[in-house]
Design a binder for these strands. Structure first.
Lengths: 173, 173
DNA sequence: AAATTAGATGATAGTAATTATCATCTGAGA
DNA sequence: TCTCAGATGATAATTACTATCATCTAATTT
């Protein structure tokens, strides 16, 4: 199985395209295109450092000294909701511990945060068989499969049904 | 590549052995074996739910009504340090965002929290090729490879050197 | 171009999770 | 039993985030 660091030049081209299409993506989702949103997506696409809200705030502030930290937090979450950003730390609301210290992986329900253990020996071997990568000394790995458990999937279906009906009504009104 | 849910019965046997060996593991690391530590590892090994500190606190409280929440937090971190527990949420101190919404993975330095993008198409295909697993509807995946970047690896080596020298002295004193 | 308005923003209060502090207590070796 | 490094409990402090609300503005309508 191939495992490689992401290519830098490809990232630049990707970021340029995403920047160019951002306003349209907002419109598609019925979101006003504000200078704050533009500044935040810009900062996010400029950075390869997987920044925190605070880091984005610091960067955006240079050009928009009046922006509020709350706006940065809100906007980053909004961007994730419309698929224009990704939260690297899915389960960061409270720390979760595991008594099983053998190498293993997890399926995580994005609704209720339920977690189940997975075994993927081939993946453990892949990482164990490699000492370093791009200057990083590899220690171990953890695959997090994002999923919906049965009850959350059912809720999601109901919610989408309602939401579609509601948005259908507002659009025609 | 094989991908399967962890086996429940195997987990029970594993937990039993870990419980039996816990006091010795503490001694090996120079940690006193306290009733609180025993109660916390017990609760962690009993649970398959990847509990939060709060969940462990609630469970341990039933038998140890005087235990403090701070002790639970401290002990869980201590257990991770000596390798008797694992924190599922490595990067949970502050949320991190990524402008790249294409499927990809990450190497994370456990020292400075630096993150670099990884590409593992075979892994993306593995998850994309499977709709569900044990009642979970699969949506996507994210592999987090835990590592030490070059500068943190250097620091670690220095720290270990010092620590070994220091502990050597205290042991002979 | 002005009016309208849903939703965005900024300022700030509030909350939740975690960490720090410190007086007291206790496990474990002498 | 004595000693004391380190553990614990109570609680204050901190950090990251979320809620509230008055004001503002993007974008549609007139």
């Amino acid at each position: 199985m191939e495992l490689r660091l992401a290519n830098e030049e490809r990232r630049d081209a990707y970021a340029a395209q995403r920047r160019a299409e951002f306003a349209e993506r907002c419109r598609e989702h019925g979101l006003p295109v504000t200078p704050q949103r533009l500044a935040i997506i810009e900062a996010l696409l400029d950075s390869a450092e997987h920044p925190s809200a605070d880091a984005i705030f610091a960067r955006v502030r240079r050009r928009h000294p009046h922006i509020s930290l709350a706006t940065v937090h809100r906007t980053l979450e909004t961007l994730c909701e419309i698929g224009e950003a990704r939260k690297v730390t899915l389960l960061h609301d409270s720390a979760r511990y595991d008594g099983n210290v053998m190498p293993h992986h997890h399926v995580v329900c994005i609704g209720c945060r339920r977690i189940r253990d997975l075994e993927i020996p081939a993946l453990d071997n892949l990482v164990a068989g490699r000492r370093e990568l791009g200057g990083f000394k590899l220690l171990g790995s953890s695959l997090e499969i994002h999923a919906l458990c049965e009850s959350c999937a059912a809720k999601e279906t109901r919610r989408r049904g309602k939401h579609q009906a509601a948005s259908g009504k507002t659009r025609t009104s």
